[in-house]
């Protein structure tokens, strides 16, 4: 019981930090976007429009570009990082529960957590690489 109590407080802590971090990054990125009147070579009205190039499938902002974008103070990189922090928050929760199940030798739940992580990583890494609709 003790380890699972520790686990829940750890999970709660991770979630709280992640939400603050992510919304902070998104807010900073948005403010920058308005101050610079655009981002990534696009004007703000282009970013806002649903028909402009930046919002088309083939131009989805790749997460690989985030580090260089942050250095270049690209607002889209800040917003992207914030959104990816949000997407990855559940992954960290799963990892911390995995550690707990390994520690308590709960074999069945180690397997189940692995399956969930496998599904998540399939969605994040494998499907985008192979499925181009």
């Amino acid at each position: 019981m003790e380890t699972s109590d520790k686990l829940t407080s750890l999970v709660s802590w991770i979630l709280k930090i992640a939400v603050f971090l992510s919304i902070g990054l998104v807010t900073i990125g948005s403010i920058m976007m308005f101050i610079f009147n655009g981002a990534d070579g696009y004007t703000i009205s282009q970013i806002q429009s649903y028909n402009s190039k930046i919002n088309l499938t083939s131009h989805a902002f790749s997460p690989v570009l985030i580090p260089s974008g942050l250095v270049a103070l690209n607002p889209i990189a800040f917003i992207s990082l914030g959104l990816w922090v949000l997407i990855f928050t559940p992954v960290t929760v799963l990892f911390s529960s995995l550690v707990d199940y390994i520690y308590t030798k709960n074999k069945l739940y180690v397997i189940l957590t692995f399956i969930v992580l496998f599904n998540l990583f399939t969605a994040i890494l494998i499907i985008p690489a192979f499925v181009k609709l």
Binding site: Y50, I54, N55, I87
Partner: peptide, 12 residues
């Protein structure tokens, strides 16, 4: 995201 349906302006 990879399909391009996360629109930054709107999502933020």
């Amino acid at each position: 995201w990879y399909e391009g349906y996360i629109q930054f302006f709107l999502a933020a």
